[in-house]
Design a protein around this nucleic acid. Structure first.
Length: 283
DNA sequence: CTTACGGCCTGGGTGC
DNA sequence: TGCACCCAGGCCGTAA
C-alpha cells in the first residue's frame, strides 16, 4: 500500500535513472486501470522523460514530445494498493500481473505490475490540471505548523478521517495515520476541532517524524511494496501499532486494540491514546 | 457545505 | 481439493 514514503522512495529511485531517457516502445496488457490506453500507445513512443515528481501518492513523469512543436505532458501514475513501478533488464523474467512495459532508449525497461489493478494511469496535458490533482490538500512535509493546526482546528471530523482525507493533506494512508497518532498519543476517534493546540503541535511533529523516518528506511513493505529496483523497504520493522493487534504497546505495555474509523481498520494503544469522552447526542 | 457510511472494483489469503 | 468470505484504498452516491 504505497503511501507518501513509498511513493517518494520510488520517485527518488526513478529520478536517478529516467530523466533524459526516451521511451522507444509501449506494450500493454490489461488496460482497465488506464484512462485512455490508445492515447498512451500513440503518444508515448518517442517521448523524452524530463523529470520525475511525486504529488501526494501520485507519481508524475514529465514528458516532452519532439514532434515539431514542443508538446509537454505528464504521465500520471497512482499505485493503488498493489502497484509496482520498476526498471529492469527486458530479459529478466516478467512478474505475474505486469500490464505495462515501456522500452527505454538505453535498452532497459520500465514495468508496471499491479495484482489488484486498483491503481491508475493516465496522460495529463500541460494545461489540463485535472480535478484529482488540483483538489488535493497540502503536502504534510511542506505544510507549516500554523497551517496544520488551523486546518485541523477548523474541522469536526475524526482526526483519523482528516489525516486520511487527501483533500486535507496529500499522501498519508492508513499505516502512517495510525503510526502518527500513536506517536502523538491521540486517539483516532478524537475530533479535529476538539484537539488542544498542544496536541495538534504534537501531531504535526509526529506526522513529519514518522514520514521522514519511513522515507529514510525506504518505506514499509507489508505485502506487495517494493522500490523501483525491486527492493523491500525497512520501516515495517519500526511500526508501533499498525498490524500489532493484541501485542504490547512499546511505550506502556498495554495490549494494542483495533477498531474501525473512517471505514478503515485502526490500531491504537488504549492507555497511551485515551478515547474521547462520549457526548450525548442531541435527539 | 460538512460528515458518515455503504458499495464497488480485484484477487490473494484464510478457514472450514 | 474446493470454495465462500474477508479485506485493502480511493471514489462516488446518498442521507442527515
Amino acid at each position: 500500500m504505497p503511501e507518501l514514503p513509498e511513493v517518494e522512495t520510488i520517485a527518488r529511485g526513478l529520478r536517478a535513472v529516467l530523466p533524459g531517457r526516451r521511451i522507444v516502445g509501449v506494450r500493454l496488457g490489461k488496460t482497465d486501470f488506464i484512462d485512455d490506453p490508445a492515447e498512451i500507445e500513440r503518444r508515448l513512443p518517442g517521448a523524452k522523460i524530463r523529470a520525475v515528481r511525486r504529488h501526494g501518492k501520485y507519481l508524475l513523469l514529465d514528458l516532452e514530445s519532439t514532434n515539431g512543436n514542443h508538446h509537454a505532458s505528464s504521465l500520471l501514475i497512482h499505485l493503488g494498493m498493489t502497484g509496482r513501478l520498476t526498471t529492469s533488464d527486458p530479459a529478466e523474467p516478467v512478474p505475474a500481473h505486469t500490464h505495462v512495459f515501456f522500452a527505454l532508449d538505453n535498452g532497459r525497461e520500465l514495468r508496471y505490475t499491479d495484482v489488484r489493478r486498483f491503481g491508475r494511469m493516465g496522460l495529463l496535458d500541460e494545461a489540463s490540471h485535472e480535478k484529482s490533482l488540483d483538489s488535493l490538500g497540502l503536502d504534510p512535509l511542506e505544510i507549516s505548523e500554523d497551517e496544520f493546526t488551523a486546518l485541523m482546528k477548523a474541522r469536526r471530523a475524526r482526526i483519523k478521517a482528516l489525516l486520511l482525507d487527501q483533500h486535507v493533506l496529500r499522501g498519508i494512508g492508513n499505516i502512517y495515520a495510525d503510526e502518527s497518532l500513536w506517536r502523538a498519543r491521540i486517539h483516532p476517534m478524537r475530533l479535529g476541532a476538539r484537539l488542544s493546540l498542544e496536541e495538534l503541535r504534537r501531531l504535526y511533529r509526529a506526522v513529519r517524524d514518522v514520514l521522514n523516518d519511513a522515507i529514510r528506511l525506504r518505506g514499509s513493505s507489508i505485502a506487495d511494496y517494493v522500490d523501483s529496483e525491486g527492493n523491500l523497504g525497512g520501516f515495517q520493522r519500526r511500526h508501533r501499532v499498525y498490524q500489532r493487534f493484541g501485542k504490547k504497546c512499546f511505550r506502556c505495555g498495554a495490549a494494542i486494540e483495533r477498531t474501525i474509523v473512517a471505514g478503515r481498520t485502526s490500531h491504537f494503544c488504549p492507555r497511551c491514546q485515551p478515547a474521547p469522552r462520549l457526548r450525548r447526542k442531541r435527539h
